[in-house]
Design a protein around this nucleic acid. Structure first.
Lengths: 219, 219
DNA sequence: CGGTGCGTTGAATCCGGTCAACAGTTGTGG
DNA sequence: CCACAACTGTTGACCGGATTCAACGCACCG
């Protein structure tokens, strides 16, 4: 459809760019959260940062009528919990059973430098995500989502067999991440299946048959 | 056309405490950019931060086919230019004639602490903006945009006469900020006029007659 | 078994996009 | 000064994609 010019790379910058942060917290104790349990809520006192040891976390904002916008999914190694002020202005809870290490920002120069870099990665991701939500149709958003998940699982571009992606989150979560409805997400996935771009091995697991086709969809 | 008012931005939703930053750069020289001129481009080497002395800046991402998503408008006092890595992954250029002071991040602890806070404000704004783009219809997005502009100009909630909002940017800019088309933006504005919620004094200036109605639209 | 949560599929509706024409403003040059 | 072009913004008609509403399949679990 469109050829991606080298300048305008729409590809999300993978959080693995600087790979998993080597933070002091990596040695700390791991707190376990069961699927669906709250990590923090809007209005809570901010300050603590978290690093995902295992599992998946969703960070989101809510509207009064229940509409939800998921800002990001956080997976192994990711650090989240950055806030501008004294209070949380987003919610965070565990998608699956999740282990977290807490980080208390110290005055250590090297540490805060590293945390700054990680926070800027969050900002970069937010910008990327804004682009996909604001300027892609339903198919493009789902494609972008799948490519992001593949990146995170290190299976992006792998040949058949290794091209497995598993989705730890529900259709509702995906829809709320992409600004769509669950029905639309479902329909796009079946259309991608019918177009031989994906193979849906189960509702939470799929195979990518044609990466290039997926990338074309994100335009 | 753009008066540099004292800018007492009292944010109702997100607690954006401590407005204009008191940064050392405030005393530095101001570089002037004419309307439309580029400040930096995607791929440029990152590192420099900027503070707006006067005027308006748009920060955006581009797709290969020209589609654009504006991430943020920056006005007097705002600091922008934060990046995760060594290279820019967004574009920035002047909407109107704009003056900028440059900030080179030093090792000063207090400065970096302040810059960290400002960077986190950018992250918070990105999350807010993602919510409006992802979970609001056209009217809700335009309403959210107008409320944001009013906040920035310190006219939010003011009675008739002071309820003037001026829009330094074109309809195209607004559309690319909200993930809409210029036609839709225009239609929403005329509908808001017909509903006696706004009064359009000119294409770049309007009056808010009913703030509550605007806020209801954002749901 | 029936209940519940999750996902898929279908049909009808509607909102926003697309295409097109037109109006208002600014700027340029004869 | 006027004529014209170029740009920006508005409005209309039509269309299509995403939502809405609804039914159904399926796995899991009491």
């Amino acid at each position: 459809m469109f050829d991606a010019s080298p300048l305008t790379q729409a590809r999300p910058l993978s959080p693995r760019d600087g790979d998993v942060a080597h933070l002091p917290a990596l040695n700390g104790p791991v707190a376990t959260f069961s699927a669906g349990s709250e990590i923090y809520a809007q209005g809570d006192r901010a300050g603590t940062l978290y690093q995902v040891a295992f599992g998946v976390v969703r960070v989101y904002r809510l509207l009064a009528d229940g509409r939800r916008q998921i800002c990001a999914f956080h997976m192994v190694g990711d650090v989240f919990g950055f806030e501008a002020g004294i209070a949380r202005h987003v919610f965070a809870d565990a998608v699956t059973t999740t282990g977290l290490r807490t980080i208390r920002p110290s005055s250590d120069a090297d540490l805060s430098r590293e945390l700054y870099r990680l926070a800027m990665q969050s900002l970069g991701h937010a910008h990327d995500h804004l682009l996909t939500v604001g300027r892609n149709d339903a198919a493009g958003r789902v494609a972008a989502f799948l490519l992001e998940m593949a990146d995170r699982q290190g299976t992006h571009g792998e040949q058949t067999g290794r091209a497995q992606i598993n989705l730890p989150m529900s259709r509702t979560d995906i829809a709320d991440y992409l600004g769509l409805t669950i029905e639309t997400v479902s329909r796009v996935l079946t259309r991608l299946k019918e177009a031989r771009i994906l193979r849906l091995t189960s509702s939470r697991e799929l195979q990518v048959l044609r990466w290039d086709a997926l990338e074309d969809l994100t335009a």
